[in-house]
Write a protein that binds this DNA or RNA. Sequence first.
DNA 1: GCCGTTTTCGGCCCGACTGTTTTCAGTCG
Length: 590
Amino acid sequence: MSLNNDLSNLFATMAAILEIKGEPVFKAIAFTKVSRWLKDSTLDLADLVATGKLADVEGIGPSSRRIIEEFIRTGSSSDFQELSKGVPAGVIGMLDIPSLGPKTISLLWKSRNITSVDELKSAIEKGELAGLKGIGEKKIAAIKEGIELRAKAGGRVGLPAALAAALPILEELGALPNVVEAKIAGSLRRFRETIGDVDLLCAAKPGADPQSIGRAVAAFPQVQKVLAQGVTKTSIVTFDGLQVDLRIVPPANFGAALLYFTGSKEHGVRLRSRAIDQGMTLNEWGIYRTSEYDKSAKKTGEAPSVKPLASRTEADVYKVLGLPYIEPELREDRGEIDAAAAGKLPKLVELAEIRGDLHCHTTASDGANSILEMAQAAREKGYQFLAITDHSKSSVIANGLTAERLLAHVKAIHKAAEQVKGLTLLAGCEVDILADGHLDFEAEVLAELDWVVASPHVALRQDRPKATDRILRAIESRYVNVIGHPTGRMIDQREGLPLDFARIFRAAAGSGTALEINGSYPRFDLNDVAARSAAEAGVMIAVDTDAHSVGGLEQMMFGVEVARRAWLTSGQIVNCMTPARLTQFISRKR
DNA sequence: GCCGTTTTCGGCCCGACTGTTTTCAGTCG
């Protein structure tokens, strides 16, 4: 996996250099696509190269293939060395600064010899940017602010935090007198694991001045700063440092706008190019017959004068394109448009289909609530089963249970089960997978349990063969029902184990061992891409919260969202089984 | 650089906002 990451970064850097050098943008776009594919793919690159299957991957042509093959062979790329010759590394880092793009960076570099963010900062302070063509006072101020913003925000915020910040603003927006409808769009609507900025869309009451809505939002109590304010678009920064972009459209164009601003960018590009193939033009106002659209009058901030073929709802627009409605979680240009055209979109799992949680903690280890409290909370959520899975002895910091304490705990769970009617309470354990793949308890202890989650918690920097063997060994145990957070990655904090997924998935599918989507942020592990590959390989997926309190059970919605992004249906998820089916699933392995 | 049920060459998605401009380039999503 780190090979994929390294190569992904290599291609992203090459794209950046091409942009700054002012090469035709399409080269950079092509490399960006390769970079994205490398980051997303769980396939074994070395394997693809060896079998010649790399040539089948869409978007990877002869040049990219040559670069990848050379990199695998030698660990470096002569194309990259050639391209980056004479380009200081700091120049590329300047691309991260908002309001500073490749053209300006190139200008600063060529005319003022500015080659890093630090040099840029001191040049601004000394007033050395004055007199450059196309750069005035305001532009310089914008660059200065961009540098500060970058230093403070550090980029993206986690999904749960972004959602928590966005919902109150959405509510205030929806309550404005001139707003007919308001929705979250962008990556937040697609439930990406991290969010760059929040996109909101609203429909203005016909006849109302759209700009008045933008002004009202700019005056919301959360607003720290207004970045831009036009007729149909307002951008603000909240006191949390989160950027929120609002677009205002007429109700008749709401669907087209929602489709446009939900993205992803790549999904949108594909839809628009599909429209072109069919003699149509798709934009945020609607989908139009190109012959009519080209003749129509257009004015910034207003719908084109010609009548669209569709625009009111997203489904209407998809239909004109000959496609069924595509759920936002699938709109990542990962084959969803081809699947839609072929009538092969999955019926995505829904939160209401989840019948229980199979990974949670109590006061016996590091949780905040008792067995009974957790069980009652699960019952109140309408669950039919719940597995109590406290930590094993090696997790000392988490007050992990010794064999003795665990066996007493099992009895306590069975006793609590009698007090909560209508809920199957499973006595389980989250057993550490030790560095060598041994489990933290002997078989005779595990045999006393109804449900076993085996998870890696330590030694998360192992190399690929070691890490893979370790997890494979756990999968082989007849008592292990699911591997919890299989890679141990933490978003933005640590990479996790570089597993050979192909081998893991084969073993898990063959043995009837589930793999977990852990719905607690920043785990989300397996992630969407890996979970999708796993399910395609026939692996059953468990969607769990890893709740450490009653409130933690609510994280199930995030786990389900990862599952939806992984194209999963209820039939591929252990938590959607009836209690009777679940019992069968467990006994089949033993 | 990649791609091809009209193409092996000639295309490659689209609009809003800002700033520095007198008609447009750069940036962003």
